[in-house]
Amino acid sequence: MIEIRWHGRGGQGAKTASLLLADVAFSTGKFIQGFPEYGPERMGAPLTAYNRIDDKIIRIHSNIYEPDYVVVVDDTLINSVDVTQGLKETGGILINSSLSPDEVRKTIPEYRGAVYTVDATKISHECLKANFPNTALLSAVIKITNLMNREDLEEHMLDSFKTKFAKKPEVIEPNMNAVRRAYDEVKGGNSYDK
């Protein structure tokens, strides 16, 4: 079982991203859970969302305390939230940031596992002319967790966009570009010792 924790701010779509990831994993035939940190969602306030992904039925219904992966939607959270709390060193952390993994690692010095960064915000601005970093982040998460290979991911995302943007087909290709770029541009993956 893979357990993932998302850190974002209210209104940034961390919850939606976790549900999108659940969707992708579901489409590959996995058992999934996707749930937000239960409670009121306030714009700008730090929030967490969670995923469990497994090949067999998932019965556990507690929160996730020792995630395999952490995704940080907004890197300003690193200063106020302990984003690596309980994070397994065999796993990794993916941060939406313009900085390199080595530079980001300095801000989370206690964590010895793999650190990845992707500038999902920049990709979003360039591809979509707007700040919707989730598509890019989703693509990067799928790459680092090996949930799907690139072809399957592209095929799945294209199907999903075709449904979602049935009335706005012109935005399908820009979104697909964001998927491809994030898959290619995600950096890092070395653990501390290497």
Binding site: F31, I32, Q33, G34, F35, Y38, G39, H61
Partner: peptide, 12 residues
């Protein structure tokens, strides 16, 4: 059934 835990969790 359980609020949030079941009501708001997406599962298969």
């Amino acid at each position: 059934y359980d609020g949030f835990i079941t009501s708001h969790s997406v599962e298969n």
